[in-house]
Structure formats: structure tokens, C-alpha cells
Design a protein around this nucleic acid. Sequence first.
DNA 1: TCGGCTAAGGTGACAATGTCACTGACCGAC
DNA 2: GTCGGTCAGTGACATTGTCACCTTAGCCGA
Lengths: 228, 228
Amino acid sequence: MSTKGFASDNWIARFPGLSVGLEPAVRDRLLREGRIAHVPAGTMLFGPGQPPTHLLLLLEGTVRVQQTSESGRDIVLYRVEAGQSCVLTTACLLAYEDYLAEGIAETDLITVAIPRPVFDELLATSPGFRTFVFTAYSRRITDLFRVIDEVAFQRIDIRLAQRLIDLSRGSGAVHATHQDLASELGTAREVVSRQLQEFQRRGWIAQSRGNIALLDSTALEALAAERS
Amino acid sequence: MSTKGFASDNWIARFPGLSVGLEPAVRDRLLREGRIAHVPAGTMLFGPGQPPTHLLLLLEGTVRVQQTSESGRDIVLYRVEAGQSCVLTTACLLAYEDYLAEGIAETDLITVAIPRPVFDELLATSPGFRTFVFTAYSRRITDLFRVIDEVAFQRIDIRLAQRLIDLSRGSGAVHATHQDLASELGTAREVVSRQLQEFQRRGWIAQSRGNIALLDSTALEALAAERS
DNA sequence: TCGGCTAAGGTGACAATGTCACTGACCGAC
DNA sequence: GTCGGTCAGTGACATTGTCACCTTAGCCGA
């Protein structure tokens, strides 16, 4: 968690996609021009009215990318983890249209910002960088495909079980209100409440205000593994 | 509709994103290396087990990109029209993961295939080509965001009315079975049947086997314009 | 410490959508 | 013609979403 480790000469090693096959000159350019910044949790990194001007690389923390519908409900599209990049925002830079999605720092972040001109020049000069960018794109698009599949075709109890497991990250607990979970899945709070009651009835979880303890992760995983 | 018009010296003019700001050398390279092909309707251009090896540009026709869930139901993600490109397939080329989506020629097509090495070199040498590619990406991602919003938050009658209008393209009729429309929207045939009956009861449409006549497009558009 | 404010969560009725099983209607091949 | 398959209609039911309203837990100032 120390920031000392991110002196400007070694952060590239944190990115699997950049540390392999990247030309030395490109590597130097990134280290020279990439600006390391600390961002507090809760910051909106991009969104309607906040056009991004950089390619963001994440050294530490998590960014939640979500979409808010006109009716005020929202759904989480994907998360950007440390070692990944917010590539979809780069498309925004060049886009003819505004994005509907917004990116929010879920934790305190340490980021590297690559200015647009540098991004553009690296794309031009470095096959390794191009591969990095397109691979990252591909991952995000796959994420979006998965979201569409889940929203359109998956039962809500299965999706909720999956999300509880994901959010717990093995800690055995999830800090989130029912409304938070509803926003994760793009559904209504009452639906989450009912499903959680059912999970509780089966002894899989225990609830307290704003907190859910996973008592039987195995059962939840079994449900999450079901296919419609 | 004649293919004579696509002699290898002028097709670029058909692509708004390519005809403006493209370097002459790049233009020549595209014309020299891009291979024009005719593809019959119904052909699967890419999909599971059909990794694409080219960037596809569409001179004529329409490509439907859809996703099939494990349960066998599918949903249309977007369509590629003449003058656009199948850029998402390029991410597939570089991806670590397979795509779940498949692209199907909805009509007879005339395409230009850009081989991977040429695509890569153009990305490197041409800012104009880069802009073209990223703009196309951006458009598709925006499409996916819209699909997610619709599936998660829009009423089915509104979505059906929108789709009927889109598919009719002003012709006043839609050639599609109820099952086809269900696949468009990612829902069940019975749901479409019931909604169409309601539209018919209101005098907005007339149905015959595999065919729907739009009698009152204005009313359908009014419904389609509603927001949840 | 008390009271009240606010966010979180619970509940029941109902509407909308999805699932299932089955039926009949239409259409082309023979 | 009739046969077989696709297309569409239907009712019962399950699941999910919506709405209105309520209770409860925690916080915070008086």
C-alpha cells in the first residue's frame, strides 16, 4: 500500500500488458510523461460533463464504472482493478458522442495519467502498446457482453449470489446496503431484500444494517454456478 | 446497387470516416491491399469458432451482430450498416478471450477486407486511420451501453415499438416472425405475441404470418418515445 | 439522556414479464 | 389432397418490478 514503491522508474512492472514486449524507448517515454496522481475514494473520474483527457492506468485501487438510466436507476458495468487501464475513456476522447457511463473511485487510487498526445504517439510507434490497448478494449467489451447476457437471461437470485461472492473477495462479508446491491445488478431494492431474506432463511447469510456476512459461501457458489 | 461502382479506385469515398483527413499514401495502401468480396446473405462472418482475420469494411448490405445465451435465447446487439466497419472483431484478433457474439450477413454484402498486417501498419502510420478505428469503436460501445440500458430498464412494449419502427425503415411493414422479434429484444416469443396483439387491438398494426404492417406509425413512435 | 431525524430495511398488493405446456392454423413438399 | 413442420394463440403459473406505506436502527443535537 505504500506509495514509495511507485517511484517513476518501476511502475510499468505492475502492468502485465506493458512489461512484456514493450520497446525500451516507449518504456522510457511512459515513465517520463506519465504523471502519477493520488485520487481520493468517491471521486468521479469521468462521466457526463467530465470528459477525460488522459488514458488512466491504475496502480492501486478500484474504479467502478456504472450507468445511470433516465429513471434514476443504475447498474454497474464493470470494475477496473490495479494493473488495468480505463481504455474505454480513450474512445470517448475521439468519440462523436457522449458516454452515458461514469467512473467512480471506489477506493483511494494511485493512477498514472498518459496525456492524449503521448497516448497517440505511443499508438503510432509501439506495436506492444497497441496490443496493450486493444487487449484492454477486448476485455472491457467482453465484460459488456457478459453484463448484457446476465441482465437479459439470468435469474436474479443467481446474479445476486455471484455478486455477493465477488464483493466479499473471500473476506466472508460484504459491506453494502440493499440499495447498493440493487444498483450493482440494475434491479430494485425490494427485490434484493426479498432474495436476501430467502438466503438468510436458508442459513447462507446473516444480515445486519449495511452489512452481510456470508455463512455458507459454498452454497452461494453452488447457486451462482447454476445456469438458467 | 451495382457492383461496377466499386472499382478499386473509389470505394473509400463511401466511408465518411476515411474520406476526410486520410493521408494519400494510406489511401493508396488501402485501395491496393483491401480485397473486395461478395458475401451471400446468411453467412456467418465471425463467431465462436470463426475467428476473424481481417478488418471488415461494409460497402453494401447489413451485418447483424447478436449474442446467444447458454439457454439458447439470443439478443441483437447492433447492426453494421454500409459505410461502417466491424471494428469489434479487430479486438477479437488481439484478445485473450473468445467472443460470445456472432456476426451474420443479413443481406448480400459487398465488403472490403483489410488484412491484419495492413491494419496494424495503418494504425501505426496514419492518425486519420486511428481516428477512424477509435471512432468506430466508440460508436459500438455506445451501442452496447444503450442495449444494457434498454434491457435493464425499458418496458418491453416501448422496446418492441422502437424495433418495429427501426426494422420497417419507413416501408410500413416488417418481415419477421414473432420469434425473430423476440430474438431482437432478448425476450420470449409469447411476450412478443401478446404485445403485438395489443398493438393490433389498438389498430396500430395488422398481422399476417411472418409479416407485420404498420398502420399507425405515429402512434408507435409516440409509444417508442416514452421514457420509463 | 431523550427525542427526533434520516437512512435502511420490511411488507403486501398488484403489474409486468417470463416460462411451460399445449393447441390450432398455415404452408410447402410430396 | 395429406403430411410434417413452422408459426402463432392461449391459459396457468412463476418470477421480477412497482408502489405505497410501515418499522427499525443509528446518529446527533438539545
